[in-house]
Amino acid sequence: MSILSVSLTIAIEEIQMALFYRISDKKRLEAKNEIFVKKGIPALKRQGFEQSPFSSSWFGRNNLNNFTYTMCRISSNSELEMITTHISRRDAWIQIFLNIFKLEPKLETLTELETRDGMQFSMPSDTEMRLRMDDYKGPPLFHGVRHKLKSFYTEKGFEESVQNLGELIKKDMENIDHFIKRWHELHRPMVTDWEGIICANKPTS
Score class of each variant (00 low, 15 high):
residue 203 P to R: 03
residue 82 M to D: 09
residue 11 A to P: 10
residue 147 H to A: 14
residue 57 S to Y: 03
residue 160 E to C: 02
residue 36 F to T: 01
residue 179 F to R: 04
residue 48 G to H: 05
residue 162 V to G: 01
residue 146 R to C: 10
residue 159 E to I: 06
residue 112 E to S: 13
residue 170 K to L: 11
residue 58 W to C: 07
residue 155 E to C: 04
residue 138 G to F: 08
residue 84 T to Y: 10
residue 199 C to R: 12
residue 60 G to L: 03
residue 78 S to E: 12
residue 43 A to C: 05
residue 166 G to F: 10
residue 47 Q to F: 09
residue 152 F to W: 00
residue 45 K to C: 05
residue 131 L to Y: 00
residue 201 N to C: 09
residue 104 E to W: 06
residue 87 I to N: 08
residue 152 F to M: 03
residue 112 E to I: 11
residue 37 V to C: 05
residue 115 T to C: 11
residue 176 I to D: 07
residue 28 R to F: 04
residue 178 H to Y: 10
residue 24 S to H: 04
residue 102 K to H: 02
residue 35 I to C: 01
residue 10 I to Q: 08
residue 92 A to M: 10
residue 168 L to S: 12
residue 114 E to T: 07
residue 74 I to F: 01
residue 147 H to G: 09
residue 72 C to F: 06
residue 22 R to E: 13
residue 96 I to A: 06
residue 48 G to T: 00
residue 185 E to S: 15
residue 6 V to Q: 15
residue 24 S to K: 01
residue 191 V to P: 09
residue 3 I to A: 13
residue 156 K to C: 09
residue 14 E to Q: 15
residue 102 K to L: 12
residue 129 M to V: 00
residue 193 D to R: 01
residue 98 L to N: 01
residue 185 E to H: 11
residue 169 I to F: 09
residue 37 V to W: 02
residue 3 I to Y: 14
residue 70 T to S: 07
residue 162 V to I: 07
residue 44 L to Y: 02
residue 172 D to V: 04
residue 204 T to N: 13
residue 25 D to R: 04
residue 162 V to D: 08
residue 18 A to Q: 10
residue 115 T to L: 15
residue 181 K to W: 12
residue 197 I to W: 14
residue 90 R to E: 06
residue 205 S to R: 07
residue 107 L to S: 03
residue 136 Y to I: 02
residue 113 L to F: 01
residue 11 A to G: 15
residue 141 L to R: 13
residue 97 F to A: 11
residue 136 Y to H: 04
residue 5 S to W: 11
residue 155 E to S: 02
residue 67 F to Q: 06
residue 149 L to P: 03
residue 72 C to N: 05
residue 92 A to R: 11
residue 37 V to T: 00
residue 192 T to L: 01
residue 57 S to P: 06
residue 80 L to V: 04
residue 187 H to K: 05
residue 15 I to M: 13
residue 172 D to K: 09
residue 173 M to V: 00
residue 167 E to Y: 10
residue 118 G to L: 06
residue 202 K to T: 08
residue 8 L to T: 06
residue 155 E to I: 07
residue 94 I to F: 01
residue 144 G to V: 09
residue 75 S to H: 01
residue 123 M to N: 05
residue 184 H to M: 13
residue 156 K to A: 14
residue 100 I to C: 00
residue 62 N to Y: 05
residue 61 R to N: 09
residue 144 G to M: 13
residue 21 Y to A: 04
residue 181 K to S: 10
residue 203 P to N: 03
residue 110 L to V: 00
residue 120 Q to T: 15
residue 136 Y to C: 05
residue 69 Y to C: 01
residue 75 S to L: 02
residue 81 E to C: 13
residue 100 I to F: 04
residue 90 R to A: 10
residue 39 K to V: 03
residue 154 T to A: 00
residue 189 P to M: 12
residue 82 M to H: 08
residue 183 W to M: 05
residue 26 K to E: 11
residue 94 I to E: 00
residue 12 I to N: 06
residue 45 K to L: 08
residue 168 L to Y: 14
residue 11 A to C: 13
residue 25 D to L: 08
residue 67 F to M: 08
residue 25 D to P: 08
residue 88 S to P: 03
residue 135 D to T: 01
residue 167 E to C: 14
residue 53 P to G: 02
residue 84 T to M: 13
residue 181 K to D: 14
residue 168 L to M: 15
residue 13 E to N: 12
residue 46 R to V: 05
residue 46 R to D: 13
residue 106 K to H: 07
residue 109 T to W: 10
residue 107 L to R: 00
residue 83 I to K: 05
residue 102 K to I: 07
residue 201 N to S: 07
